[in-house]
Each structure stands twice: as C-alpha cells, then as structure tokens.
C-alpha cells in the first residue's frame, strides 16, 4: 500500500540555483533507490522567514509530493537532517487527510442534490438561480474582530 507524503524543505539563502536543483536530484535519487515516485515538485522561490533561523532571514522553499513508504521518508528525513544547506524541513503524510476531504465533499454534494430533488428542483444549481444571500454581502463583518484582540 502506497502512502503519500508532502515534503517541504527550506534551503539556505546562500545556496545557488544549481545547489537547489542538486538537492532536488538527491532527493529524487533516494526516492528512486528505495522505491517510490515524486508526484509533484514546486519551488516557491525565495521567501522571507517569519523568524530568524540561525542568522538566516530568508530561505528558498521547495515542496515535493512523494508516493512511497515510511522507510523511504525516514531515509529522506535522515539525509536532510545532515545536509547543512537545508535549514528546515517538514514531512507530512497527506493521503489520509485527502481521503477525508474528498469524502466530506462527496457527502455534501450528495446531500444538496438529494435535498434539491426532494424540493422538486433539478439536482444541480442552475446559473443565476437563487437570491443574493447573506454570504454574498461584501460588507460581511462576521469575522471582524472586536477591539479586545487588537
């Protein structure tokens, strides 16, 4: 059974683009070796850090979505820990949460459709149907915070 993980790592701002690309190939090599697959790679580019990490104020963020087992992620975690160029990394398992999200969405659309048919309407919302609801209100201040937190 394959699991899906998200790996985000922050590369030191001193690293060149080649070094960042090199890190990506290194991760790819581990994934290849232990058996898995990189599903998606996303370079967020240079971002300001919310706080200093060992005198660094910026970092390059890279996201990788990896299909593989726990052993593979353990190895990647170990490797990233010893890589000095990577100042922070995070591995999160996502397949289960994604499943939950999909199921909630499916259940919700199903209920709406059932309710709509019960009311004698076509199951899907027609364009231009319904009145302007409270949610369309531009001046919606439900989530405005009172003074107490400002």
């Amino acid at each position: 059974m394959s699991r899906k993980y998200e790996l985000v790592y922050v590369v030191s701002p001193e690293a060149t683009d080649e070094q960042v690309a090199d890190l990506h190939t290194q991760v790819g090599a581990i994934v290849q070796r232990i058996g898995g697959q990189i599903e998606k790679t996303d370079n967020w580019g240079r971002r300001k850090l919310a706080y200093e990490i060992g005198r660094h104020k910026e970092g390059t963020y890279v996201l990788e979505v990896i299909d593989g087992g726990g052993e593979l992620m353990k190895e990647i975690d170990r490797r990233l820990k010893v890589t000095d160029l990577v100042i922070r990394h995070l591995i999160v398992r996502v397949d289960e949460d994604q499943g939950v999200v999909e199921r909630t969405r499916a259940r919700r659309t199903e209920t709406t459709r059932r309710r709509r048919t019960a009311r004698g309407l076509p199951p899907d919302r027609q364009p231009g149907e319904g009145q302007r609801g409270e949610l369309d209100d531009d001046r919606d201040d439900r989530f405005d915070l009172g003074e107490e937190v400002r």
């Binding site: 985000v8 922050v10 971002r47 850090l49 919310a50 706080y51 990490i53 970092g59 963020y61 922070r88 995070l90 999160v92």
Partner: peptide, 11 residues
C-alpha cells in the same frame, strides 16, 4: 503549528 515549524508564521 506546521506553518510555524517552517517559519511561514512566527511563533
């Protein structure tokens, strides 16, 4: 908490 660990949000 995850965003904080990645320095996306301050502690």
């Amino acid at each position: 908490m995850r965003a904080r660990a990645l320095a996306l949000i301050p502690y």
